[in-house]
Amino acid sequence: MATTDRQATTLALAHALSAAERGLAVIPLSRTKLPALRSPHRDDPAPSPLPATPFEQGELPTPRCHGECGRFGHGVYDASTDPRRIRELFAAAPWATGYGIACGLPPHHLIGIDLDTKSGTDSSAALRELALRHLFTIPATVVVLTPSGGRHLWLSGPPDVVVPNSASRLAPGIDIRGAGGYLVGPGSRTEHGVYGTAPGTAQLAPAHCPPELLRLLTPPPRTHHRAPSATGQHDQGLVQFVLAAHEGQRNTRLFWAACRAYENGFGPELAGALTEAAVRTGLTEREARSTIASAARMSVERPRPEQN
Rank of each mutant, 00 (worst) to 15 (best):
residue 1 M to R: 08
residue 8 A to G: 07
residue 13 L to E: 09
residue 13 L to S: 06
residue 15 H to V: 06
residue 19 A to L: 04
residue 20 A to T: 09
residue 22 R to E: 07
residue 22 R to Y: 05
residue 25 A to I: 11
residue 28 P to D: 11
residue 29 L to F: 13
residue 31 R to Q: 12
residue 43 D to H: 07
residue 54 P to Y: 08
residue 62 T to G: 03
residue 68 E to T: 05
residue 70 G to Q: 05
residue 70 G to A: 05
residue 73 G to P: 12
residue 74 H to W: 10
residue 82 D to Q: 15
residue 87 R to V: 09
residue 91 A to H: 06
residue 92 A to Y: 02
residue 92 A to M: 03
residue 95 W to N: 10
residue 96 A to P: 09
residue 96 A to I: 15
residue 106 P to M: 15
residue 107 P to M: 06
residue 113 I to A: 05
residue 114 D to T: 15
residue 115 L to P: 01
residue 119 S to R: 14
residue 121 T to G: 07
residue 121 T to E: 15
residue 125 A to H: 12
residue 125 A to M: 11
residue 129 E to I: 01
residue 130 L to F: 02
residue 131 A to R: 08
residue 139 P to W: 00
residue 141 T to N: 09
residue 142 V to L: 11
residue 143 V to G: 10
residue 145 L to H: 13
residue 148 S to R: 10
residue 152 H to R: 06
residue 162 V to P: 00
residue 162 V to M: 10
residue 163 V to A: 11
residue 163 V to R: 00
residue 163 V to Y: 05
residue 169 R to H: 14
residue 170 L to D: 08
residue 175 D to W: 00
residue 176 I to H: 01
residue 176 I to R: 00
residue 179 A to I: 02
residue 180 G to E: 06
residue 181 G to I: 04
residue 184 V to R: 12
residue 188 S to F: 08
residue 196 G to P: 00
residue 196 G to S: 15
residue 196 G to E: 08
residue 199 P to S: 14
residue 199 P to I: 14
residue 200 G to M: 14
residue 202 A to Y: 01
residue 203 Q to A: 14
residue 208 H to W: 02
residue 209 C to N: 02
residue 211 P to W: 00
residue 212 E to D: 08
residue 216 L to Y: 11
residue 218 T to Q: 07
residue 219 P to L: 05
residue 221 P to Y: 11
residue 224 H to W: 01
residue 231 T to P: 00
residue 234 H to M: 04
residue 235 D to T: 03
residue 236 Q to C: 02
residue 241 F to S: 08
residue 241 F to D: 13
residue 245 A to C: 12
residue 246 H to P: 06
residue 249 Q to S: 15
residue 250 R to A: 10
residue 251 N to F: 00
residue 251 N to C: 08
residue 253 R to V: 00
residue 254 L to E: 07
residue 254 L to D: 05
residue 257 A to G: 08
residue 258 A to W: 03
residue 265 G to W: 02
residue 266 F to M: 01
residue 269 E to H: 03
residue 272 G to R: 02
residue 275 T to Q: 03
residue 276 E to M: 03
residue 277 A to C: 07
residue 279 V to P: 03
residue 280 R to T: 12
residue 280 R to E: 12
residue 282 G to D: 11
residue 282 G to E: 02
residue 289 R to C: 09
residue 291 T to W: 09
residue 295 A to Y: 06
residue 296 A to T: 00
residue 299 S to E: 04
residue 305 P to N: 08
